[in-house]
Amino acid sequence: MKQSERTDLTRAKIRKAFIALVETKGFGNLTVSDLTREAAVSRGTFYVHYADKHELLASIEGDLHNNIAGIVKKNIGATIESYSTTDASSRNEALSDNLYTLFNNALYYIDQERWTMKVLMSPNGDPQFFNEIKDVVDETFTQQLKLGNGHFSDALPIDYTKEIVVNNVVYLVRHWINKDNPENVEDFAKILMQSRFLSPNNLIIFSKD
């Protein structure tokens, strides 16, 4: 086995042990001794890779931030370009197709990291993690929108507009992550799609007596 492969395996063991301990003990209560015991590595091995538990947390969260931002950047760019270059008669269909691809790709990654993200967003995890994810998605979406010569409408104050257009999706994803029996990726992607095109008026029905 190559040294790089051994390094990756060791880091994976430490990270898995870390998330398990955050889930059971809470980040504030776990120690490096807990980590080395859970991961079955020496303290020396741990310190080769991380200075302390805070650096380990930052490394895990940084990877999640970067990977989610990369998926959003790649796919939202294609979505905006398609929308801006398609004739009006086909625009909604093009938007739907590209938006579904964006949701699908992002959700497949999130589903793979579900346990880690669920633990980090829990009371035992990092109270700032969810807001950091929101900021990453917001910033990436806004950057790509500008690159595509788009902008947010001024029909509402910009902070409310962003909550509706961007951050509402992140809240729905958090709900999906935390469900005991979540929908599969494809079905939840369809739910996200519907949420983008339905208004509250479409979701509340009064029976006629």
Rank of each mutant, 00 (worst) to 15 (best):
residue 90 S to F: 12
residue 171 Y to A: 11
residue 141 F to E: 11
residue 145 L to D: 05
residue 119 V to H: 02
residue 13 K to Y: 10
residue 133 I to L: 11
residue 152 F to K: 06
residue 97 D to Y: 09
residue 153 S to K: 08
residue 33 S to C: 05
residue 130 F to R: 05
residue 166 V to K: 10
residue 3 Q to P: 15
residue 58 A to S: 06
residue 11 R to I: 11
residue 14 I to P: 03
residue 195 S to L: 06
residue 145 L to T: 03
residue 35 L to R: 00
residue 136 V to P: 14
residue 156 L to P: 14
residue 127 P to R: 05
residue 22 V to L: 11
residue 33 S to W: 04
residue 179 K to F: 15
residue 124 N to Y: 06
residue 142 T to R: 12
residue 46 F to R: 10
residue 67 N to C: 00
residue 125 G to K: 04
residue 153 S to N: 11
residue 6 R to A: 15
residue 161 T to I: 15
residue 24 T to M: 04
residue 181 N to I: 10
residue 34 D to Q: 01
residue 165 V to Y: 06
residue 6 R to Y: 13
residue 191 I to Y: 09
residue 160 Y to H: 07
residue 23 E to P: 04
residue 156 L to A: 12
residue 11 R to S: 12
residue 96 S to V: 06
residue 206 F to Y: 12
residue 150 G to H: 03
residue 56 L to S: 02
residue 169 V to N: 15
residue 202 N to M: 09
residue 68 I to M: 00
residue 138 D to L: 15
residue 207 S to M: 13
residue 59 S to H: 04
residue 199 S to D: 11
residue 199 S to I: 14
residue 22 V to Q: 09
residue 63 D to E: 15
residue 108 Y to W: 13
residue 28 G to R: 10
residue 194 Q to P: 03
residue 109 Y to L: 08
residue 17 A to P: 03
residue 106 A to K: 05
residue 82 S to C: 08
residue 136 V to S: 09
residue 53 K to W: 09
residue 34 D to E: 00
residue 57 L to F: 09
residue 114 R to M: 09
residue 60 I to N: 05
residue 68 I to Y: 00
residue 7 T to N: 13
residue 189 A to G: 04
residue 96 S to R: 15
residue 65 H to R: 07
residue 112 Q to Y: 09
residue 76 I to K: 03
residue 203 L to R: 10
residue 40 A to I: 15
residue 106 A to L: 05
residue 124 N to K: 10
residue 33 S to F: 01
residue 102 L to W: 02
residue 62 G to K: 08
residue 57 L to C: 11
residue 189 A to I: 01
residue 42 S to A: 02
residue 107 L to K: 05
residue 26 G to T: 02
residue 208 K to A: 08
residue 36 T to S: 04
residue 12 A to V: 05
residue 196 R to W: 06
residue 172 L to G: 07
residue 199 S to N: 13
residue 129 F to Y: 07
residue 103 F to M: 01
residue 43 R to F: 07
residue 150 G to F: 01
residue 106 A to F: 02
residue 154 D to N: 13
residue 54 H to S: 14
residue 153 S to I: 00
residue 207 S to H: 15
residue 19 I to G: 08
residue 157 P to G: 06
residue 125 G to P: 01
residue 152 F to D: 00
residue 189 A to F: 07
residue 39 A to M: 04
residue 146 K to V: 09
residue 65 H to T: 03
residue 73 K to F: 06
residue 49 H to W: 06
residue 12 A to R: 11
residue 173 V to G: 02
residue 51 A to D: 11
residue 42 S to T: 01
residue 2 K to Y: 15
residue 197 F to C: 10
residue 73 K to Y: 00
